[in-house]
Amino acid sequence: MRGMSIIVKKVVQLMSALIFVFGLYIVSHGHIDPGGGFTGGVVLAGSFIVLILAYGVDYFKLKKQKEITSLFENVSILILLLFGLSGLFAGSFYFFNNYLSPGAPGTLISGGLIPFYNLFIGIKVGATMFVIFLALTIYKEEASK
C-alpha cells in the first residue's frame, strides 16, 4: 500500500488528532451521554487507521506498532479483571460490584466505577480493532514481496 497525494496527507494530518480527541470525549462521557467504551474505542481505532491509509505502510514501523498495540490490549483486559476482583476486597461477595458511591447523577464524576470500566474497555476495543487492521496490512506487505 503506497501513500496518497499531499492534499490527502495534509488533511488527514490535521483531522486525525481531532478524531482522536472526539473518541476520548465519547469514552469519557459514556455514563452521561450516548456513547461509551465500545463506541469510543472504534472511533479511536479509526483515527489511527485513517493515518495508515493516507500515509502508506513505508512511513511507519508497523511491526513495532503491532507489538505496542498488542501490549495495550492485553494490559487493559487484565486491568478490567482486576477492577472486577477489587470488589471482593472491598467487602462485597461477587464480581464487578460497583462499590464506589454513585455521586450526583448527570455530572462528569459520578457513576462509581463505570467511568473506569468505560476507559479501559475503550482502550481494549480500540487496540483490538487496530491490531486486526495492522495484522492484515503486515500480511499483505509480506505476501506481496
Partner: peptide, 10 residues
C-alpha cells in the same frame, strides 16, 4: 446489541 455489534466486526 451494543457489545455484539463490536464482536461482529471482530
Amino acid at each position: 446489541v451494543l457489545t455484539t455489534l463490536v464482536i461482529a466486526l471482530a
